[in-house]
Amino acid sequence: MAIKTLDVRGEICPDPLTLTLKEMQGLAVGDVLKIIVDSPMALETISRWAQNVGNRLVCVTELGAGQWEITIEKLVA
């Protein structure tokens, strides 16, 4: 199981999501992606997308004011 980190702070919507999608394509089932975001909307969109497509939203950690780390486990190829 590989764990990768993607930092999308400073990107504007919808790039946090499109970059996440691109990164997820390169992962195998069971791998984990941690995405660092600084936009509340990106936090919600990425979390909803992960759950909607059947991946596991492992956790969301607040890193500081207005910054979060989203941890997703890839469950679907």
Binding site: G10, I12, D15, D38, P40, G64, A65, G66, Q67
Partner: peptide, 21 residues
């Protein structure tokens, strides 16, 4: 609201993104 929820933070995009915005 941002102060109340402790989410206020100065955030700036990268220069290319700023010009796009």
């Amino acid at each position: 609201a941002a102060q109340w929820s402790h989410e206020f933070q100065w955030r700036a995009p990268k220069p290319r993104r700023l010009m796009q915005q």
